[in-house]
């Protein structure tokens, strides 16, 4: 174990106390804003920040608001569809990058990283230009109709989610013991059977973790969605962002808390599946 909790390498005395206190403060910094927002989403007042009693009316008002619910349904549809597509494409990419060597592999590897690190604004600009120039061509593909807005949102979200899924699945494949697959092959399992019976079950925690992460990033995206969304297909974060730039009301606190709760639940699930499932083998 590399942990140094009881060795001379760990800081001692005053330095130790200082380090612990400082770290605790950073965690307060991480979570205090979220807690404050949570508390004020129950505030019985028209002010977003002056406390005057408890109410859950804002949540009722949020769920009664037709704009909020329709944006929510767009968000969920886009997140689910784009996740399904990116899980398939991302898992295939992860498998081929970890297990096979072919010409151009390094180039594909590099391009696959770019959507993760590229600033949102740049990716949004790219896709806006693309859809405004090439939407006629894309609509020629049967089943795709970019004028509906939802399709362009899905196509854009897949473009960054493939990378997130493939990163998580690759980490899982790299941790796998290849000897199990070799054993399956030695026992005369063909490539398909080996994949379905051995490889896929073993990388499943990575796939589930990657899928949950893809749902989160799709559900959270504001900048790219606000650039490619057509009229009538606003996602929930895009709708909230629009409200925030006009007038801030406590209703936004409640809607924000709903978004945050969904997003934290997905992240926590993703982290847990990657860790607990990978421990059980």
């Amino acid at each position: 174990m590399k942990g140094a909790s009881r060795s001379t390498a760990a800081p001692r005395g005053a330095a130790r106390g200082l380090l612990t206190g400082f770290s605790a403060l950073v965690f307060v910094f991480f979570y205090a804003p979220i807690v404050v927002l949570f508390v004020f989403s129950f505030n019985n007042s028209n002010s977003i920040s002056i406390w005057s009693g408890f109410t859950n009316d804002w949540y009722g008002a949020a769920l009664d608001n037709a704009n909020v619910t329709s944006a929510m349904s767009v968000s969920i549809r886009v997140a689910v569809i784009s996740t399904v597509i990116s899980v398939v494409l991302g898992t295939l990419s992860a498998l081929t990058l970890e297990r096979y060597r072919w010409r151009g592999r390094m180039v594909f590897d590099a391009i696959l990283y770019l959507p993760i690190i590229i600033p949102d604004v740049a990716m949004a600009v790219m896709l806006l230009l693309f859809f405004s120039r090439a939407s006629d061509l894309i609509s020629l593909v049967p089943g795709i109709d970019t004028s509906s807005g939802i399709d362009s949102l899905v196509l854009s979200h897949v473009a960054f989610n493939i990378s997130f899924v493939s990163v998580v699945v690759r980490a899982r494949i790299a941790d796998m013991d290849p000897s199990v697959e070799e054993a399956a092959a030695d026992l005369y399992a063909n490539r398909w059977r080996t994949f379905w019976r051995v490889t896929l079950p073993q990388i499943m925690p990575g796939i589930i973790g990657g899928a949950l992460l893809a749902l989160t990033t799709s559900f959270d995206d504001v900048v790219i969605s606000s650039f490619v969304a057509a009229l009538g297909s606003t996602t929930l974060p895009v709708y909230v962002f629009g409200l925030l730039r006009k007038d801030v009301t406590p209703l936004i606190n409640a809607v924000s808390m709903i978004i945050l709760a969904i997003s934290i639940a997905l992240v926590a699930l993703s982290l847990l599946t990657q860790r607990t499932l990978s421990r059980s083998d």
């Binding site: 979570y31 979220i34 992460l213 989160t216 959270d220 974060p237 909230v240 962002f241 997003s263 993703s270």
Partner: peptide
Amino acid sequence: PFWSNFLV
């Protein structure tokens, strides 16, 4: 916090 909603 790293992965939860940035806007919120």
